[in-house]
Amino acid sequence: MTAYVALLRAVNVGGTGKLPMTILAELCNAAGLSRVQTYIASGNVVAHSDASEDHVRTALEHQIHAYCGKRIGVIVRTASEIADVVARNPFRDMPGNRVMALFVDTPLPADPMEGVTGAKDEQIRVGKRELFVFYPNGMGTTRLRIPSEKTGTARNMNTVARLAEIAAALG
């Protein structure tokens, strides 16, 4: 069994895409996942599966689509990948709530500023399958727009670290 972390895109944000976490857990079970745990009401799941990452993503997207009637993107990573994201955080000396990992399943740009608009003091670094973004003034007033946001999903490093802990404990 592999421990996976599934990150849903655009769930429970700004009053749109409401999906109660109890329902999400049921959808995960229906997708064949076991030992399902959700974390905070923003579409974070830790669970076990014998299936591949692609199969977990596809099965979960199918279940969510059947329930919600619309497509919601799901990013899936193994527990070890999530732990690696925490370890590779280039902004580890900064407050975790001001550093985001933007998880993507598409190729990353060689230049992290490629196509970015609205940048002020923010800093972006390329990871393996994610971009790391440091918001020195917080996200509340930023005008930063990153092309990968359209298909990816971001979590602050406090959340990523907690998901890594839950996944490690799940085994």
Rank of each mutant, 00 (worst) to 15 (best):
T2L: 05
T2A: 08
A3T: 15
Y4V: 15
V5L: 08
V5T: 10
A6I: 03
L7G: 06
R9L: 13
N12V: 06
V13A: 07
T16R: 13
G17N: 07
G17C: 03
L19A: 01
L19W: 02
L19H: 01
P20W: 04
T22N: 15
I23A: 12
L24K: 10
L24D: 09
L24R: 11
A25K: 15
A25Q: 15
E26S: 14
L27E: 12
L27Y: 08
A31H: 02
G32H: 05
L33S: 02
L33G: 01
S34Q: 12
V36S: 04
Q37I: 02
Q37V: 08
Y39C: 05
I40L: 10
A41T: 05
S42L: 03
N44C: 05
A47H: 06
H48A: 08
S49H: 02
E53K: 15
H55N: 09
T58Q: 11
T58R: 09
T58M: 09
T58C: 06
T58H: 04
H62W: 07
H62D: 15
Q63D: 04
H65T: 11
H65P: 01
C68W: 08
G69Y: 13
I72W: 02
V74P: 00
V74I: 00
I75A: 11
V76G: 05
V76M: 14
R77H: 05
A79I: 09
E81P: 11
A83K: 05
A83P: 00
A83Y: 01
A83C: 04
A87V: 04
R88P: 02
N89C: 08
N89S: 03
P90W: 04
P95H: 06
V99L: 09
M100N: 10
L102M: 09
F103D: 06
V104I: 00
T106E: 15
T106Y: 01
P107I: 07
L108W: 11
L108I: 02
L108N: 08
A110Y: 10
A110W: 06
G115I: 12
V116M: 03
T117L: 11
G118M: 00
A119D: 00
E122N: 05
E122I: 01
V126Q: 15
V126N: 13
G127N: 12
G127K: 14
K128D: 14
K128P: 00
E130V: 00
L131V: 00
F132S: 04
V133L: 11
P136C: 06
N137V: 03
T141D: 14
R143G: 09
R143W: 07
L144D: 05
L144I: 07
L144Q: 05
R145F: 10
P147I: 11
S148G: 11
S148H: 15
S148D: 15
E149T: 12
K150A: 12
K150D: 12
R155N: 03
R162W: 04
A164E: 08
I166L: 07
I166Q: 06
A167T: 00
A168W: 02
A169Q: 15
G171P: 11
G171N: 14
